[in-house]
Amino acid sequence: MKTFKHFDAESVDHVLAILARYHGKTALMAGGTDLIGVLKSEILPEYPKIIINLKTIAGMNTIKMVDKECRIGATARLADIAASGLIQKIFPALAAAAESVGSPELRNMGTLGGNLCQDTRCWYYRYPDKMGGRIPCYRKGKGPCHAVKGENRYHAIIGGKKCYAVCPSDMAIALAALDARVKIIGPGGSRLVPILDFYNVLCTILNPDEMVTEVRIPEPGKNTVQAFYKNRPREAVDFAVVSVAVRLERTGDVCKDACIILGAVAPVPYRAVAAEEAVRGRRLHEIHAADAAKAAVKDARPLSQNAYKIEIAKTLVKRALLSF
């Protein structure tokens, strides 16, 4: 790996000061399981001059309830989130999402913030530089999205525009269904952004002088149920082909409210509003689950090789809804 300067962050303010001083020449490192791969393969034309280690910021890895809100620090490890009694009890969908990431070793290293901010897995984007040169593309600021006319089995079926790479984060999908917000701190202070607004087509809304410090999840109502389903080619060390996170509020077997989020189908976590409508106010019998499944993918416009993801998305929505 090419070298860089390495700073241990002492505090959030310290990070902000470094970001401000070395504007755009830095990379934030938490677990490193994504960033180190990006650096080793030299997939990006710009190589960071400075790596800032966030793990040294005291207290940024905690999981706690504060005022009916769960706060998870950005450097909390995925393994700790998956194993947390609190998370398992109150946010089982999030525990399941955390448990589905990578492998036990990767979960021991990877963090919540890192999972949310990881770069896409698009194989054109991640083509290693030393195998003939990195591949310029729209996402890198130059050229088309090669997936459109190329190999696109894992790319977006919904909402692709100019770049069809999908958001690889499993945690984002579960968190979106749980109505979580991301705490971002920058030079102008802090803000809380709903997960769905945290992403844009080409990554996240984070400015180069900002960082994620925490995620806040409201405690769900008493009659809430939730589930996370992930389809992937391999039962470990794999990203989602399609994932679904569902949160339902119900009275008896009638669904009062629903939040249905699809992962890996779009450049950002996709809220299937039509599917939510299809189940809202109705009994959860198979027929409605099937309606919701259909509605979930109504906006799908698959590329040449990924229409199969539509079928998988429908299946996952149906199975998730019928799991309660």
Partner: peptide, 27 residues
């Protein structure tokens, strides 16, 4: 694999198995 996907570089750090190929020594 040197990319965190094969597990062959696993060592135990502070009681937990981690991938030494995706860990910076300085950290």
């Amino acid at each position: 694999c040197d990319q965190g996907a094969c597990g062959s570089c696993t060592v135990i750090m502070d009681g937990k198995p981690v991938l030494s190929c995706m860990t910076l020594a300085i950290e």
